[in-house]
């Protein structure tokens, strides 16, 4: 049985705005517009889309805090809104912008409360907390009041709080938004570990492709409330020809050599000591670098993943869009 099953899921918001002194206009926004999704137990699903695509709205419906306008939805066999409290015992939720921790108290106190809230046996709780403490490096701020934590530290706390009762499904809404590089790294590594165990189903929303690059085998891309892609990241890149960008800085200006022997690589620009190449999904970065070092001394090299906005705009250009829906 699928852990999450959505069929024709829709959510419309009525937005009222003042128009003139007395008149008010109301318009309907389709935040989620017919999403079909089946998620199996143990999957680590990346739910990707630009800002305003409808990611948070979908997660709110799945966790039972928002009522779908139409469509069928079950999570862990429950109808989320009518059976919210029963569902709450079986899922963990992190909403990037909201806090589930006790603001004024040391982080530790929030975890103790959650042990009782979810009736977790003491031994099991201690073991889970120890794991999270090790993996997320919580030790140094366990006794710091939550309000004094940095965003990255707080987010690591939120993740732990969502996981201590061993939920079957973990919903994470933009868990890396605004985090520093190190915290982002810690969160991704932690999720990779969790995903590798294959026991907890994870639904992760993000607008950052790098988040899910190595994490999620399955990626669902949503835009304007519609699923525009459901498959692997490689399939996504292949299908829509999204390009990575390699920027090479040389110690002294160089004359770019020939790259026609390297499949999928094109020279985008060359100005003095900086060369920029575009690589499609067939290109091998290693081969390009091997070629570059023969041209001169490399000072710096960076590889930029395609932006989600680029991928999406390509989705629209591509004729393949029509078969998705």
């Amino acid at each position: 049985m699928n852990v999450i099953e959505a069929r024709g899921l829709r959510k419309e918001f009525t937005v009222r705005a003042k128009a003139g002194r007395f008149r008010r206009t109301s318009s309907v926004v389709s935040a989620v517009d017919g999403v079909d999704l089946a998620v199996e137990r143990g999957e680590l699903l990346g739910y990707l889309g630009p800002n305003g695509a409808g990611k948070s709205t979908t997660l709110k419906m799945m966790t039972g805090v928002l009522h779908p306008t139409a469509g069928d939805l079950t999570v862990c066999g429950y109808a989320p809104v009518p059976q919210r409290r029963r569902l709450a015992a079986r899922i963990g939720v992190v909403f990037g912008q909201r806090s589930g921790l006790q603001w004024d108290l040391p982080l530790r106190d929030s975890f103790t409360l959650l042990r009782h809230v979810h009736r977790v046996p003491a031994g099991e709780h201690a073991a889970a907390l120890r794991r999270c403490t090790d993996l997320l490096d919580l030790g140094s701020f366990m006794d710091t009041p939550v309000r004094q934590l940095s965003l990255g530290q707080r987010m690591r706390g939120e993740l732990t709080a969502a996981l201590l009762h061993s939920p079957e499904v973990l919903f994470l809404d933009e868990p890396t938004i605004g985090l520093d590089v190190l915290s982002k790294q810690a969160v991704r590594q932690f999720l990779a570990e969790l995903g590798a165990r294959g026991d907890t189903t994870v639904v992760l929303t993000t607008h950052d492709l790098a988040d899910i690059e190595r994490l999620c085998r399955r990626i669902v891309v949503i835009d304007h409330g519609r699923v525009v892609h459901d498959g692997t990241l490689t399939q996504l890149h292949e299908r829509y020809g999204s390009q990575r960008r390699v920027t090479a800085d040389f110690a002294v200006p160089v004359v770019p050599g020939d790259v026609s022997g390297l499949p999928g690589v094109t020279l985008e620009s060359a100005e003095a000591a900086r060369l920029v190449f575009a690589l499609d999904s067939t290109a091998e970065v290693g081969d390009l670098i091997a070629r570059l070092v023969t041209w001169g001394t490399l000072r710096d090299l960076s590889i930029a993943e395609p932006e989600i906005e680029d991928v999406i705009s390509r989705l629209y250009l591509s004729p393949a869009t029509s078969i998705m829906s």
């Binding site: 029963r86 015992a89 009782h116 009736r119 709780h125 073991a127 794991r131 996981l163 079957e168 165990r197």
Partner: peptide, 22 residues
């Protein structure tokens, strides 16, 4: 143990002692 194994649902406090602990 711990989050390694997603456990079956624990119902919200049903008996008096669990309610008292919560």
């Amino acid at each position: 143990m711990g989050f390694v194994t997603a456990t079956a649902a624990r119902q919200a406090g049903r008996n008096f002692f669990e309610l008292a602990a919560q």
